[in-house]
Design a protein around this nucleic acid. Structure first.
Lengths: 147, 147
DNA sequence: TATAGTCAGTTTATAAACTAAACTCACTTA
DNA sequence: TAAGTGAGTTTAGTTTATAAACTGACTATA
């Protein structure tokens, strides 16, 4: 399998990564969740090269994860905002942040936290099963690979 | 910020991506969760170049996400297995797969599913708040960025 | 009205990362 | 003895990423 054939893979993780798995893409999306939505702001925040930023934004727009919303004409300029498909990545982002927080050590104490508005607490996210509502831990999950 | 300075970032997502954000790394870990743990098996499964596979495995071992376990001596050969830190990525993997399943369309119906052993159902994972136990949706989360 | 500044790019040259294919080494099995 | 296996390493070539300067269509300031 070559990297650019990942989108045809028979695995949802592989297909997700065909869109998200390139360098910087997750970082751009993280910024989107933080409310960043302009080219210059992404560039200044990430220090990413403009060429790559242009490519990644185009890819995300074409994949339907970001939507371009014009905020001025002459010259036409766009905000890049999360679509529904993009917002659906919220769970992935939260779990990724939680893992980074607890598992990646030796780093300065982070200053980024999330607050759960509905209950008012600082958010500690976990993955639960929609059927039984219980927390899902690795040892209780069995992959079923048909075909 | 350059890509290789990401590990010093003041954001848990950035730090997570300093380890996981390179091409193929997530795919290798996916295979680990499916029970793959030998060099040749990763290589055959992913079709990744051996050079990159070697680099990624070394990086994951050095980051404490995979552990080398010798299964023979003369010549010494290792299984690469998930450490506790690696297993803690389970939630990220599940949410990534769930997103790939529901949000990335136009692809052949996937044949990979998960079963939740404790309740017996096919798993539909969601992210919940440890304080109130409710499902966490994007609009109810506010990032708090100190400093 | 000139001058500078902003925003979202594009261009170009250079550096780093990835890939395929062949090769090595220490064994095992037929 | 010859072939095979498993985990790499080497090499040469291709693809990506990067920094820095440039463009174009404006807007704000002196």
């Amino acid at each position: 399998m070559r990297w650019n054939e990942l989108d045809q893979a028979d695995c949802p993780i592989a297909r997700a990564l065909s869109i998200l798995g390139e360098r910087w893409t997750f970082m751009i999306l993280r910024d989107c969740f933080f409310g960043v939505h302009r080219f210059e702001a992404f560039q200044a925040n990430l220090g990413i090269s403009r060429t790559i930023l242009r490519d990644r934004l185009a890819h995300l727009v074409q994949a339907g994860i970001l939507v371009q919303r014009p905020y001025q004409e002459r010259p036409i300029r766009y905000d890049y905002v999360l679509s529904a498909k993009g917002k659906a990545l919220n769970g992935v982002m939260l779990m990724l942040g939680e893992w980074g927080q607890t598992a990646v050590d030796g780093q300065p104490e982070t200053q980024v936290r999330h607050r759960h508005q509905t209950c008012g607490h600082v958010l500690t996210p976990y993955v639960a099963c929609a059927e039984c509502g219980e927390e899902v831990v690795a040892k209780d999950v069995r992959a079923v690979r048909a075909g």
